[in-house]
Amino acid sequence: MRNISVLVADDENEIADLIAIHLEKEGYHVIKVGDGEEAVRVVENQLIDLLILDIMMPKMDGYEVTRRIREQHNMPIIFLSAKTSDFDKVQGLVIGADDYMTKPFTPIEMVARVNAQLRRYMKLNQHKRSIYDTNSLEFAGLVISPDQRTVRLYGKRVDLTPKEFEILHLLASHPKKVFSVEHIFQRVWGETYFEGANTVMVHIRTLRKKLEEDKRKEKWIKTVWGVGYTFNG
């Protein structure tokens, strides 16, 4: 399963860092932004499971961010604000927030509220996920969707060529199984293998670069010297 992604939008870096530290200890993938417009852009371009929004932010406040996001998305939203009046809390909930926390807060309470909102959201959407995601292959941070022929790495879309996608899907569909270069060439190109080793190697090299294996500790595609390649999922 991919890591659950939490977006933290707060222009106070110290608060955003504090939230990130404790959520990452829980195993969540945390993305931090400092203004409302960037928060909207991230939601539009990445897979986000939960949002923590400060109300008073530059460029676009938390209320407007929520209005924009609620036009197309239903993930949990937790408002974070120094405003403590009942009116502010009610206004936030009416606009579309699922919870409201006031500053200062304790990290333990924040983590508990995040966990509670995600449990509720996952339970309510379990049936929908089972219908639409049955063919998706999900690993820690990597989601491969054969129906849409899309790949996302920590929520960010990875643009692959058709051959690169087919190689990745072939390997990921059989984790730990070793595929020879000949087998990969025949399955992906559909042709009789004839000096196709270099073609496969070039595609594997580009695929590894796009999966950011040079930047991350995860090595999705493992070389088995003298044999071929395997998916290390």
Rank of each mutant, 00 (worst) to 15 (best):
V111R: 03
V90W: 10
M56F: 09
S130Q: 08
L118T: 07
E71L: 06
Q117N: 15
S136T: 12
F87W: 13
L80C: 02
K103D: 13
P76D: 01
P58F: 04
M101K: 09
S81V: 02
I31T: 12
D54V: 01
N74F: 04
L137Y: 08
V33W: 02
S85H: 08
Q46W: 08
R67D: 15
V33Y: 01
R120Y: 14
Q72P: 05
L93E: 12
D54I: 01
H73P: 03
R129T: 15
M60R: 06
S136Y: 03
K123F: 10
V90Q: 12
Q117I: 04
F105M: 06
A112K: 02
L53P: 00
I52L: 12
D35G: 04
D61Q: 05
S85D: 15
G92Q: 08
I31C: 04
K59Q: 14
V42M: 00
R120G: 11
P76W: 00
E64W: 06
E38R: 08
T106R: 10
T106Y: 11
R41W: 04
D49K: 00
G36A: 05
R120N: 15
R119A: 10
S136R: 09
M110V: 14
L51N: 01
M56Y: 06
R113L: 05
V42C: 02
M56T: 11
G36Y: 00
Q126A: 13
M101Y: 13
F105T: 06
S85M: 07
T102G: 06
V90C: 07
R68L: 11
Y121S: 12
R129K: 10
Q72F: 12
L50C: 14
I69M: 00
F87T: 15
A116W: 08
I78Y: 04
M110H: 08
R68V: 14
V90E: 14
L124T: 14
T106K: 07
F105C: 04
D99V: 11
L47W: 14
G34E: 10
R41N: 13
D99P: 02
E64H: 08
R113H: 05
Y100N: 06
M75L: 11
M57H: 06
D86R: 09
L124W: 09
M122R: 07
H73N: 13
Y100D: 08
Q46K: 12
I131V: 14
D133G: 11
V42L: 00
N45T: 15
I69D: 00
D133N: 14
V90G: 06
Q91W: 07
E38K: 13
H73D: 11
D35E: 15
I48F: 03
K32Q: 09
L50Y: 04
D98M: 08
Q72L: 07
V42F: 00
I77Y: 02
H127S: 09
L50N: 04
I52Q: 03
K59N: 15
D133F: 12
I55Y: 04
S136H: 07
M56L: 07
P104R: 08
V114I: 15
E109D: 14
I48Y: 01
R120K: 12
Y132T: 15
R67F: 12
P76T: 01
M110G: 09
P58M: 04
A39N: 03
V111Y: 05
Y63K: 05
G62K: 01
T84I: 14
I77Q: 02
